[in-house]
Design a protein around this nucleic acid. Structure first.
Lengths: 149, 149
DNA sequence: GTTGGTGCAAAATCTTTGCATCTGG
DNA sequence: CCAGATGCAAAGATTTTGCACCAAC
């Protein structure tokens, strides 16, 4: 958390951005919900409950900024709104999501499994991969019934 | 193409859907732009140029239907609109996209590279994968300069 | 004929923007 | 101070919906 704040302050200074009450609150909401994928509206409501002095336009603008400095990642789960997720680590990029097509739950996967695939693509296609966004659709442990095998 | 039309007619009959002029035109647009990722508005304009007798609401409704019968796949490329792509083959699912972060071009990749990864995820997490959507971000052959290595 | 589909326009969402005011550095 | 940020409300953009009429099957 201390690391987060310092990282943020450096990044903001670098870009000439300021850190005020609203931005601190939005960042706090994101930090306290690292495992979730909050929408703008959800972030707005969380922040509003902490302090009514914030407008939704500020949330849109702040999230665009946090995407730019790579503090968060913008995601799309086909539910009509953009969702945002704390960027766990941009070097060992691992935006993998397992989406259950029965219960709808979204599970994060904290491993980078695609190193080999990305090397293969570079060798075969000459395309140099820097990041990826991966969504796997299927049945979660609870919904596919088979805890065995 | 013949195969397509028969597949479609079967699927539609199965669901009780009808095949009319507007739907035929939309399907034609999709078939003739298999390598592209058209937005609703683009599909609407292509179809309108073939026959002015179509409304954009019909395009929205028809694409929702084509997603349902898995004739097309809905994609999101962070440009504010949903885009649709012909579903090359749902068994050997291969919705891989290489997105160049310099020139913006989107390349399709027609291989399924994730079989091993998906097996691994099932063994480790018990999550049974049926499909995936994968976007790789990086520099394309032209933009990374290195045709060698 | 029935059932589902269409175009249109209105409505609902989601997101962006203009502007007067405020505030962090 | 002054550049950047805010809240608000208006505007934009995308998508959905109600309804009277039309057309596949």
């Amino acid at each position: 958390l201390i690391t987060n704040i310092n990282f943020l302050k450096d990044k903001l200074k670098e870009k000439g951005y300021k850190l005020n009450k609203q931005r601190k609150q939005i960042i706090e909401v994101i930090n306290e919900n690292k495992e979730k994928h909050l929408s703008i509206d959800e972030i707005f409501n969380y922040a509003k409950n902490m302090n009514s002095d914030i407008g939704i336009a500020t949330v849109y603008r702040t999230l665009a900024m946090l995407v730019e400095i790579e503090y968060v990642v913008k995601m799309d789960f086909d539910d009509g709104v953009s969702r945002y997720e704390f960027n766990t680590n941009s070097d060992t990029h691992k935006h993998h999501h397992l989406i259950c097509i029965k219960c709808g739950e979204i599970f994060g996967l904290e491993e980078d499994l695609l190193g080999n695939v990305e090397e293969y693509i570079f060798r075969k296609e000459g395309f140099l991969i820097k990041d990826h966004k991966v969504k796997f659709y299927g049945y979660c442990k609870r919904c596919n019934g088979s805890t065995k095998k």
